[in-house]
Design a binder for these strands. Sequence first.
DNA 1: CAGTTCGCCTGGGGGC
DNA 2: TGCCCCCAGGCGAACT
Length: 276
Amino acid sequence: MPELPEVTTVINTLKKTIVLKRIVNVTINYEKILKNINKKTFVTLCKNQIIFDIKRLGKNIILVLSNYYLIVHLRMEGKFYYVDNKTKINYKHALAIFDLSDKNYLIFYDTRRFGTFYFYSKEKEIKNLTVLQKIGLEPWDKRLTTKYFYEKIKNRNIKIKTLLLRQDIIAGIGNIYADEILHKSNISPLRSCKYINKSECSTIIKNTKSILRNAISLGGTTVFSYNSANGISGKFQQKLQVYNKSGKLCNNCNIARINKIKLNGRGTHYCENCQR
DNA sequence: CAGTTCGCCTGGGGGC
DNA sequence: TGCCCCCAGGCGAACT
């Protein structure tokens, strides 16, 4: 599942390939990905738009076009492929195909069909776009301090992992990194926010920054690819301490085995010995 | 209002 | 081998 580091890697790759290309045509094979516009209007408005820039906000990918913003969320399995016309694609999962001015194609590929497109006129400020309004602070925002975090969580009755997954406090953390951050912080995912002290808040913030930064430098975790011939796998996979490690000996204490439970419907991995 | 559960999807895996 | 059922999960909607 693409989280902040994976989305960053996707954007870095797309920047090298599609920026300054013109959209010649668009084919939408699954209209439900379009959340705030119908297919016919979307196709008409996209034609002849130039892709000027690609930005990220939380887990959202923002394609800055001549006159519009196209905001893409990959959700679980969304991928972008940049391919030439010789590349064979399983069109069953090619939900959107952009014909580009360089004769190549940008394909939005999503087997589970959870990904979303929002389309807005650029006349609106990015921060005022409905889909982005609930996005909280980026991990490296100077306003993300221990004090900010402590004030946000101190009276809450929800479990700390549930809070980390919310996008309106810190943006960009998903299920993999939430588990990893809490393991490195020696805090149980089941602990209620109201029992987390300032010092622990400081640890969580520090580890959020370091884990996400390290993951970005390694290209992320989720396996994804940009053309059908060769998949690129993020190297952070090898650094995971708890995610998908249930039954394995904890690397930190070397005593307990990683436990897997369900927390609010999400698979949750942690060490009962290290994380209290 | 805060917190929890549901529903959207489909490939893959386990059980038989 | 084939069929059924369940699971994975981000996030908005609907619920308590």
